[in-house]
Design a protein around this nucleic acid. Structure first.
Lengths: 375, 375
DNA sequence: GCGACTTAGTCTGATTTCTGAACTAAGTTG
DNA sequence: CAACTTAGTTCAGAAATCAGACTAAGTCGC
């Protein structure tokens, strides 16, 4: 129906914002005449709309933008309990959300998700035929086809064909993706990385994950394991990790490890916030803890920068207090362990994410497939 | 002249070996009729030839292969002294070579290279118009346009527009590339990585470098610095490096560092070979040295595997004795620092390279541009 | 305020490109 | 050796694309 060129146009507008037909033509390498046709078709399909016009000299040019109501995607975040199912428009705006129980039985969970869809459509006043696909974000390893959850410790799943389970019930093209990778897709499609071809996203939560965009494409790795930095060695004399190795990043810098250490050190803390507060009050145990965790994460990020030279590193987290000692040590460690020329030219951004971000990230997985013509 | 499809065909044949028209059609997604035209044009241009036929049932299908004499490329390796200039055919065979003085004055060196070209053509009995481009491989940092050498410590160069200097004299499209990256291009085009989309090549020489192929493309990094693992931190309490940081891989595992340490430790050694011999004879200093170097390199490779999950890791070197303690420790360290599931599924290959390999790597840079239609 | 000018976008006939189907080629199989 | 199978070519018609003419919608200078 739509050709490669159509999708190229949609992606270009999504990445670069509203554009004129002339600029689009130059980008995809075809004539004004052809462009006129392509855009007309996309306008007719309701995927594009004309917004404002820009005036330089001569006839003003009409800016073409994605039409938010042109397509909708559902995103399921299993990152929280209850899970969140959201309905998202083509421009990445959430128009409806529903919590569903995070049942550990995959079939039951798929039922919950499927049941949520009609309600979402009703709440969002979205016709069913506009819903183009669904994405699921979870903490764990996902296979190459983005269909099966190979292993999720948190959910207790192993080889669960989640995409099929949900897809059969909803009739929608369904994709599963790992937490960090779906968050990276969100940043690429709707966030800070729209116009960045190669970047790495770090996710610091209960566990630690990363995702790489390379040449404008998500790089999943040979076994879907690209970005699994939790088990990078950061201390060859470190603690044993549940993976069997020694000194994994996960044993020092994941929020689980940080809070666990705080507990054994007698720092009463429920969150990073509490530890930062204790450190600010002068608790040497808290300071030591934050130093160790921050420098471990910083070292891992430094390795990534040295090895991959990304255009940007985006650190994402779910804590209130990410602007304290922990982050400072992390940044210092990065600077100390990356060639100065490189570290100065590699922007590091830090941003918190909320539940909505996960659902949007999940939906982005489907949006991404749509914009690449694979739905 | 040639369309994207033509180049797609050439690349597919180069990667997968001789193929039938039918198979090609399926791969590029066009009809038998179209394929008939494309291949005829390529046959007429002398870029393809029909080799044997394969017989299943029905009419036998003719296999199409690249025609070696269809295009030639020159490769300049500044990895040795004297430098080596080689003439390479489309299938990666060296048909002529000339040594040229490695003059440190870029202009003088460019003269030498330009003067070598006519001799090469004569020796190889290659008509000048078949020579499509030239590549230069050097140890150092190269800019994004593959035109300028930003910095080469060994050559003492900084911001040298080498591609322009040579190109002006020869009239050939000329590209400069870093050592590890050109070696990776060689492996991708003509070597073990032909059919591998994502792999990492490690180069252990006087310095240490790496190069990443991702999604069938060389990933150069945001600042051309992808793969610059020499300055990865492998020991936070290590030695100061000339880059200003502490504990860089380069201070422990580069051949320069290894031989320097051997010297200060009183191990009489001119090469890795000598140190391995000393270790085999029981010299504890040699054993300690090989352990330290091997485990440092292994750790860095482990980080790469954990971070990037490549399909293959290819370690290249220029030593006779790379099958001793050093390599064993390296492999052990990799296994100890990578998740077992991943390390078991990530083939590690080790291979020595000679001077010809560098010249071929250099030529590959031009071949690669040619096969991508950018010459 | 209006004609000259500038640039955006559409329309149209010509051209190029691609395809489907018929056809030729070159073998195997019974 | 006739029947069959599959590879590759040819060719007429269909589809995509382009160059250039044309229309649209503004600004600029006087």
């Amino acid at each position: 129906m739509l050709t490669t060129t159509h999708y190229q146009i949609l992606r270009h507008i999504n990445a670069g914002g509203p554009t004129t037909r002339a600029e689009l033509g130059a980008h995809v390498g075809s004539s004004k005449a052809a462009m006129s046709g392509f855009t007309r078709e996309l306008l007719e399909k309701g995927l594009l709309r004309e917004t404002s016009t820009v005036q330089k000299q001569g006839r003003p040019s009409a800016l073409l933008d994605l039409k938010p109501e042109g397509a909708y995607f559902a995103g399921v975040s299993i990152m929280s309990d209850p899970a969140l199912v959201a309905l998202v428009d083509l421009k990445g705006k959430i128009v409806a959300r529903i919590d569903v129980p995070r049942d550990t039985d995959p079939d039951v969970f798929a039922d919950h998700v499927a049941n949520a869809v009609p309600q979402l459509l009703e709440t969002g006043k979205v016709p069913g035929k506009s819903l183009m696909g669904m994405g699921v974000a979870l903490s764990g390893l996902v296979d190459q086809e983005q269909a099966n959850c190979i292993k999720s410790t948190i959910l207790g799943w192993q080889d669960v064909p989640l995409a099929r389970l949900i897809g059969q019930r909803t009739g929608l093209p369904t994709f599963v993706e790992n937490d960090a990778k779906s968050l990276a897709l969100r940043e690429k499609l709707f966030g800070e990385a729209r116009d960045i071809g190669s970047f790495t996203l770090i996710w610091l939560g209960k566990g630690i994950g990363a995702a790489h965009f390379v040449h404008d494409r998500l790089y999943r790795g040979a076994h879907g394991g690209a970005g699994e930095i939790a088990h990078c060695t950061v201390d060859v004399n470190g603690l044993p990790c549940r993976c069997g190795k020694i000194g994994c990043l996960d044993t020092v810098a994941s929020m689980i490890a940080i809070l666990e250490t705080a507990r054994t050190q007698g720092i009463g803390a429920e969150s990073l916030n509490d530890i930062e507060t204790a450190a600010a009050r002068g608790s040497s145990a808290a300071i030591r803890l934050l130093h160790r965790a921050g420098s471990a994460l910083g070292l891992a990020i430094a390795q990534i920068i040295q090895i991959n030279d990304p255009q940007m590193v985006l650190v994402t987290h779910q804590e209130q207090a990410f602007n304290g000692l922990f982050a400072a040590v992390m940044q210092q460690t990065i600077e100390a362990n990356v060639l100065p020329r490189l570290s100065g030219d590699t922007p590091l951004r830090i941003r918190g994410v909320d539940n909505d971000a996960w659902a949007l990230g999940a939906a982005s997985v489907a949006t991404h497939s749509f914009l690449n013509g694979s739905i």
